[in-house]
């Protein structure tokens, strides 16, 4: 494979995986907590979380751009046009997806399972891990859905990353640029890689979910 393509593919996977990892570390425990805890206004809270799924990526891009620009609130970190900025923006995009899908997975089973696990005499922490284990399919599905969403994101990634060769150039931004330039060969190669990634991930998701569930999105 052309080393330039290889580099771009590796960077794409690295950036999006890092974003998903950060997002998952925060979103999954939060999802477990929300599912297990009964509190006032929980329904509204869940509705708000679900509505975040509708936030357009480009709005997150704008938000991050303004935040990270040199004269922005976090300008002194010099994050704009770096891979770090791309990871943060993608993590923000992934967060509501992982949270919402995990919560909706947990919601169905949390109560009866929790009672069962509790009667087994498990500590709260053990309960949480057993819950996550029982619901691993839903959790993995949430993560994969979020991953395929962020790795295919173009506009937002371009806004905060800048498509700098060797630093922030990823599959989607390269495809956009090479198509504009008229270099369709490179664009098509990357397009096929991106498309296969999305298809494979989706098949894995559906297999994990089994036949009882329709595809999540």
């Amino acid at each position: 494979m052309n080393p330039e393509i290889f580099e771009v593919v590796v960077r794409s996977f690295f950036v999006s995986s890092a974003a998903i990892l950060i997002s998952s570390i925060i979103a999954i425990p939060l999802a477990v907590y929300i599912s297990l805890k009964e509190f006032k206004g929980k329904k509204i809270f869940l509705a708000v979380i679900n509505s975040f799924l509708a936030v357009p990526a480009v709005a997150i891009g704008l938000f991050c751009y303004l935040l990270f620009a040199r004269n922005g609130f976090l300008g002194f970190f010099h994050l704009l046009y770096t891979a770090k900025a791309m990871i943060i923006a993608q993590a923000l995009l992934a967060f509501p997806i992982i949270l919402s899908l995990t919560v909706s997975g947990l919601q169905i089973l949390a109560k009866p399972l929790r009672d069962t696990l509790f009667t087994l005499g498990l500590s709260p922490l053990q309960t949480v891990f057993s819950l996550l284990y029982e619901l691993r399919r839903q959790v993995v599905t949430a993560i994969i859905m979020a991953f395929s969403r962020v790795i295919g994101e173009t506009g937002m990634t371009l806004m905060v990353g800048g498509n700098i060769k060797g630093e922030t150039r990823v599959m989607t931004t390269t495809i956009a640029m090479e198509t504009m330039k008229g270099n369709f060969e490179l664009a098509i190669t990357l397009g096929i890689i991106l498309l296969s990634t999305a298809i494979i991930l989706n098949i894995v998701t559906q297999l994990l979910l089994g036949e009882t569930h329709a595809p999540a999105m």
Binding site: G162, N163, I164, E167, R169
Partner: peptide
């Protein structure tokens, strides 16, 4: 570094 972008993006 190569930006692969238009003039104003490159200046930014």
């Amino acid at each position: 570094l190569e930006s692969g972008s238009g003039m104003i993006s490159t200046l930014r």
